[in-house]
Each structure stands twice: as C-alpha cells, then as structure tokens.
C-alpha cells in the first residue's frame, strides 16, 4: 500500500512544522508541506497544524491563522471527516476555527513552560490515538505560553461524558487547564487538538522518550484516507 500522505501546514510564525514532518516520516508516512496562503490541500489523507507562534500570537494565539486561505479548505474537509491534528498552536487554531470547542488561555503561571510531561491517554479510539491503549501513560514534552484549556461547564461536561478528552496531564498540571485536559477531539473523533508535543518524542536521541510516535503511526494504521471515528 502507498504511504499515507500527511499534510503539515506552515503559517507565518509556525515553528514546529519541520518537526511534525519528521515525525510523519519516522512513522512511515509521507509528509506534504502545505502553505497557509494556498487554497489547496493537495489531496492529502490527513493534516497536521503544527506548533509555533503563528502571526506572533498577535491579537491572541491562533486568532489570525484561522483566517488563512488554506483554512477555507480545511474547515469543510475536517467537518467532512478528514483527520486533523492540531498541536499546541495548531490546537489554538482549531479552537479559533470552531472545529473544537473551548479556548486556550495564558498559562496559570503566566510563564512559558517547557517540561517533560507525563500524560494519560483517555481516548484511544480516535484516528490519532488508535495505537495507544486507553489509560496508557506516556511522556512527551509540553511547551507553551497559552496552554490553559478552558470551556464553559456544559461543554466541559459534554466532553467528559462523551469521552472526548483524549489526553490528560498527570503529576503536575503545567498550565492550569481545566480537568487537567491536555487534548480533546471533536464528536466524530477525526479532529484532535493536543497541547503537548508528540512530535518531539519520536527519537530517543532528541526527546525524553519515543512515546509520541503513536500519534503518527496511528494515522498510518488507520488506513489511507479513511475517516476516523471516535
């Protein structure tokens, strides 16, 4: 079978785009570079919105990138089931684009925080987490300034009751996220937003572990172009 083609969008100010592409490659898929100003998803099987400070986080994180031309293509495609993973700034963009509920506020400590973070995978049924088992504990870096997940109580209750919390912080909540939430998915399970950076835990030489690789191998195993289901 052909390798899955996974697009990685570069916005002005994206920083971890090459790292996401490397992780895709190490997982056995083909990374495809997508440019924010194009109206073209190049027929990819899945899309990653990488970390960084797109548009300098000016106005607020993700608020400007949400209006990039490529988002005009991505938003309907995601609603139609295209697997989309937003990491850190990508998560913020997905919230701003209303593909995921809630918002990410400045960290509780008001500092940028970079640390090796223990997480628990609470939903192993999404297209991005199929290679994990529910309850599995992993260590991946978290690094963000605006990572404090927030949503109104009803939304929070809905996320919890429908199993849409994908990953949760263990040991120490690095940014004050409600319910220790590190990642969530949409109702269909094809769109996942994650504040920690699995693409920085794919090689033992450069990461605290290789635990992050599962997000990328999951999409490969999920099969080409298939719509994941939550």
């Amino acid at each position: 079978m052909n390798a899955a083609r996974v697009g990685v969008i570069t916005f002005p100010g994206s920083l971890d785009d090459r790292d996401a592409a490397r992780a895709v490659r190490l997982a056995g898929a083909e990374p495809v570079s997508l440019w924010h100003a194009d109206h073209d998803l190049q027929g990819v099987d899945a899309v990653i919105l990488p970390g960084g400070f797109s548009y300098g986080d000016y106005l607020r994180a993700g608020a400007l990138s949400r209006f990039a031309p490529i988002m005009d293509e991505l938003i309907p495609a995601a609603r139609a089931g295209l697997p989309v993973l937003g990491i850190c700034n990508g998560f913020q963009v997905l919230c701003e684009a209303h593909l995921l509920p809630g918002a990410l506020l400045p960290n509780a400590g008001l500092h940028f925080v970079c640390r090796d973070q223990r997480l628990r995978i609470d939903n192993a049924d999404t297209v991005w987490t199929g290679e994990y088992s529910e309850g599995q504990e992993i260590v991946v870096p978290v690094k963000n300034r605006d990572g404090r997940y927030t949503a109104d109580p009803d939304t929070l209750e809905e996320l919890e009751s429908t199993g849409r919390v994908v990953a949760r912080y263990l040991d120490l909540n690095p940014n004050g996220s409600l319910n220790d939430i590190a990642g969530i998915c949409n109702e269909a399970g094809n769109v996942v937003g994650l504040m920690p950076h699995p693409e920085h835990a794919v090689e033992s030489l450069t990461g605290p572990s290789t635990d992050g690789l599962g997000f990328f191998t999951s999409i490969v195993k999920a099969g080409l172009g298939q719509v994941g289901v939550g």
Partner: peptide
C-alpha cells in the same frame, strides 16, 4: 505577562479587529 485580550470563549474570532483573509 502575556498581553492581549483573553480569547472570548463563545464568540471566538468574531470579535476584535478582524484581519483580512489574505496574508
């Protein structure tokens, strides 16, 4: 402290100065 307005939870990007869709 990181400046800037906190994200409006419900309204999302509809508020505030809205950038043109282009780059």
């Amino acid at each position: 402290p990181p400046g800037g307005p906190a994200p409006a939870q419900e309204d999302g990007p509809g508020t505030g100065p809205q950038p043109p869709v282009s780059g």
